[in-house]
Design a protein around this nucleic acid. Sequence first.
DNA 1: GGTACTTTTTACATCGTTGGAACAACGTTG
DNA 2: CAACGTTGTTCCAACGATGTAAAAAGTACC
Lengths: 333, 333
Amino acid sequence: MTVTLKDVATLAGVSVKTVSNVVNGYAFVKPENRRRVEEALAATGYRPNVGARNLRRGRTGFLALMVPELSIPYFGELAGLVITAAQKRGWSVLIEQTQGTRSRERETLSSLGPHLVDGALVHPEALEAADFPSPGEIPLVMLGEHAVDVPIDHVAIDNVLAAQTAVSHLASLGRTRIAAIGRNPARGTSSQRLAGYRTALSLAGLSYSDALVAPAEKWHRSVGAAAMRSLLALDSPPDAVFCFNDLLAIGALRAVAELGLRVPEDVAIVGFDNNEESAFSLPALTTIAPDKTALAEAAIDLVHRRITGDKTLPAQDIQTPFALEIRESTKGR
Amino acid sequence: MTVTLKDVATLAGVSVKTVSNVVNGYAFVKPENRRRVEEALAATGYRPNVGARNLRRGRTGFLALMVPELSIPYFGELAGLVITAAQKRGWSVLIEQTQGTRSRERETLSSLGPHLVDGALVHPEALEAADFPSPGEIPLVMLGEHAVDVPIDHVAIDNVLAAQTAVSHLASLGRTRIAAIGRNPARGTSSQRLAGYRTALSLAGLSYSDALVAPAEKWHRSVGAAAMRSLLALDSPPDAVFCFNDLLAIGALRAVAELGLRVPEDVAIVGFDNNEESAFSLPALTTIAPDKTALAEAAIDLVHRRITGDKTLPAQDIQTPFALEIRESTKGR
DNA sequence: GGTACTTTTTACATCGTTGGAACAACGTTG
DNA sequence: CAACGTTGTTCCAACGATGTAAAAAGTACC
């Protein structure tokens, strides 16, 4: 059924190795033989057995990408870009979902044997430093949040600065009661965005109040809506809200609308991630737009360098650019 | 570096095969030996080399999933469910993106050697019957649109009936000028939804007009907005629109709002796919909700059956359920 | 103690490929 | 024409696992 090198060799009347040499572009093959092998290859429709080749070469041709959930737009978009970037370098991408739970993240990480994949890009949500494998197992690149004291390659935008940029924008509009949605002590990303939020407040001469910072276990739309409702129920409700991601912001938009208030007139809203849908919400969402393509490319670059090159390079920490995308949700007077 | 069966065998003082037997749960191993092997396994932290195992077994443990783009919410959500369903059966999923172009789809399909993956789920957009590989190459299951005369397993909802359901709902609200957005002769899905649209119109005693059916090359939000603008510019604009997917509908919502009209009062809108975001748009979108979980499970089931079981089974054609999810975009009076 | 049978272990070949060494063929050179 | 370097080809082992079959060990029975 399946065509192997041997079949091709028999047909061409040469040895298996010569066929292998032709397939792999080895220079010294007599033109006559090369021609015959190529004909035989074409005639049989030979395709190398990737598994066997990789067994021999010690490579698999696969990368793993670990994310919480593909159905979350940010991860769907990111995964798409990662796959595209990986493909350019000849890798196929295997996707593992963790639902953002620490146990599934650990499990996934430890299941990534060196035989299964050549390297992995991981976007942890709840992992702690202790969970990381002894360095040198397989090349690992971390995306997003930086789990501090782990010497592992890492690519992300400057979350603190980005959050600060978002909140400063709100302050520059003259808003004085600026709330935040998304506090979650278990997640590093949350702390960083919170830090940026506080910096921006103090730069603007505004005081920080715990009451204006709504927690959010999961950063989903429904949670954003609930958080917004409770903020608007405060005695002195906010006139602006910084949501730690776009999904929370989309939920917040809905909560505001349901109460008959207007965005941005009554409450201005800024999100984070620039999901594609955020350009089409009503009103369209002002948001922090990380350069996801740059992120994906940088991550693939890093893992590529690790795999093919110097494994002793110290851990890299790469920051990719972001921009503030100003849209209707903060544009009105 | 890496631990192999041989290392474990040496440590436990038995043969490689005995270790293999323990690892694979072979019944006849002396308790004493089993214990020692298990200790050695634990001590060395042995992990099977998947590539080698599969080379021997003739399996790879991978499935491919071919979709146009992960950044499209429907495919992100579907891919997530497929991965989850596959994982339950011990498969890892490899994702290939085609951007919905016929050339990339053909390329992907032909690159799926039997060595790379055990089977594939493909969601074609532009493929034609001739592009399909000779049956029997690798188990293939088609998702979505049915490319007619190809004897390949297929899972989808009844697109015609679903479209008809959506449009009948609009008609039942008393709407008489019901438009459609998404015509695209190159896509089978489009023809099916168009057919359902026409059936519903005639069932409701409404006449069909080409002018009310807007084309859409890509089913993206911006295209939906543009299409809606042109429909609203007609001499007698529609009072309801059936969009062939939710993204088009989200775009349409925006176009309506920008013209100062209201949904559903002036124009009722129905989408298709039930993307998560559609429950949170303003207004929330009435839409056809395919049971994506059932779809994913059925597809994995089918490919599983093909791989492990009877390869000569005639091609299956499975329909999974859908529901009409009624929300704000059609709910007003 | 021998025979027949079952349980347990091992040696060996094998999956499809590639690296390396050995070998063959060839033309060049002294 | 012997020695040599260059090209081109083949043979063999190896990657890490498992299937097969045969050998070894154990058990039961007469």
